[in-house]
Design a protein around this nucleic acid. Structure first.
Lengths: 222, 222
DNA sequence: GGTCGGATGACAGTTGTGTGACAAAACCCC
DNA sequence: GGGGTTTTGTCACACAACTGTCATCCGACC
């Protein structure tokens, strides 16, 4: 069953949504604050998160950003305000959809389905590329069994490449996935790739794993 | 640049959207009917499709279904009707988002970005032509299992030919699809075909895979 | 055998990539 | 909170790879 987390401070609205979602066949549960929602999502991740923008304490935007930081769950904003600025800000923060209250439950349900259909990547176990090991969960990179110290950015870059092992990722895609930039200087990627190479390649000038595909991007291979 | 196809029968609205999207940095082009949109998407696929629901001839729902049939492009419905039934039906048909006219361009842009971020799940399978393998995802070409270094242009050319395996593509079509030129010197294609042959054919003078059809163009065959 | 479309080698201009230096920002340990 | 350290992003330069053009040659087809 699909689990849905509802983050909404108004008890009556939250309860109504939970009931309606339940009726639609979802396994729905709710919390009243962003903080609690984040904790909940860390411990028992739901398949979808619905979040109100106006919350006591941490607001919805920040909540989205934090959710997004360590999870790729589809996030739908449920807001009373039908305001372009809010919508844009929420989507920029990392939300996937934005619907305005009051919400027709059928529509919400359909939107959730559409979002899930678009699908998502699963957790990656330790990946091995020859003498190179990348453990996304453990946050560790090893070469020939020896831990290699990498910075956070370098690590994310490696994970992203590892997740699509053998596939080219364009600088644009990497900027998007590693840095979250929709636009920006692609050379940034080059520089970090160079730094990663210094650490993981035996001969950084002739990379065997992290290779360049001229005009296309980079790829990590075995 | 991100290409956006707008399917909208009202000339004024379509034009306004195209201008606005253009301003936002999209490569936007529009058509007035579903049929034309489908044709266009088949020949020169956009990265996003915006479609109105009320169209003369084939309606928006059917258009979405057909688009969805052979493509995983993110589809956003732009409709004047803020009706739950329509929204649900459109999402069921395969749309990814639904916004109500009039549309704030910033919002639309943000939604498109959010959609693209979610990314395309489909992977292009490796195509095999005898001892020749072309992997669009991996950005790699192999002959007899050995990787063949090809340049970006050569790679695009090969992918384009591979996508239409067994079918002739005229120089004009190749110029259009690989280079994006609407006009230009067709000899350019010859030169690159020649270079590709040097790399992928056992006997470049007697090509077995990348063959010339005199007066017509080139085709890639098994 | 002439003509036209196609193949090819050379070349110069352009583009893409790697890298070292540096400043700003973030982080950490008192 | 403060000072040192690490990490990050920007920039400029150098170099290598790629691209498109052109002239010439070749071979198929009528």
């Amino acid at each position: 069953m699909t689990a849905v987390l509802v983050i909404e401070d108004d008890d009556r609205i939250r309860l109504a949504m939970l009931l309606a979602l339940d009726d639609e066949g979802y396994d729905a549960y709710g919390v009243a604050t962003a903080e609690e929602g984040l904790r909940r999502q860390r411990t028992t991740p739901a398949d979808n998160v619905l979040v109100d923008l106006m919350l006591p304490g941490m607001d919805g935007f920040e909540c989205i950003r934090q959710l997004r930081r360590d999870d790729d769950v589809p996030i739908v904003v449920i807001s009373a305000r039908d305001d372009t600025h809010d919508i844009v800000a929420a989507l920029e923060a990392g939300a996937d959809d934005y619907v305005v209250k009051p919400v027709a439950i059928k529509e919400l349900s359909a939107r959730l389905r559409a979002l899930r259909r678009r699908g998502r990547a699963t957790q990656v176990p330790t990946q091995v590329f020859g003498d190179l090991e990348i453990s996304p969960d453990a946050g560790e990179v090893r070469r020939a069994g020896q831990p290699v110290p990498v910075t956070r950015t370098e690590f994310r870059l490696l994970c992203e490449l590892a997740e699509h092992a053998g596939k080219v990722l364009s600088r644009q895609q990497l900027l998007q996935r590693v840095w979250g930039y929709d636009t920006g200087d692609e050379r940034l990627v080059d520089v970090h790739v160079g730094r990663v190479r210094q650490k993981i390649e035996q001969d950084p000038a002739n990379p065997r794993h992290l290779v360049t595909l001229r005009g296309l991007g980079y790829k990590l291979q075995r």
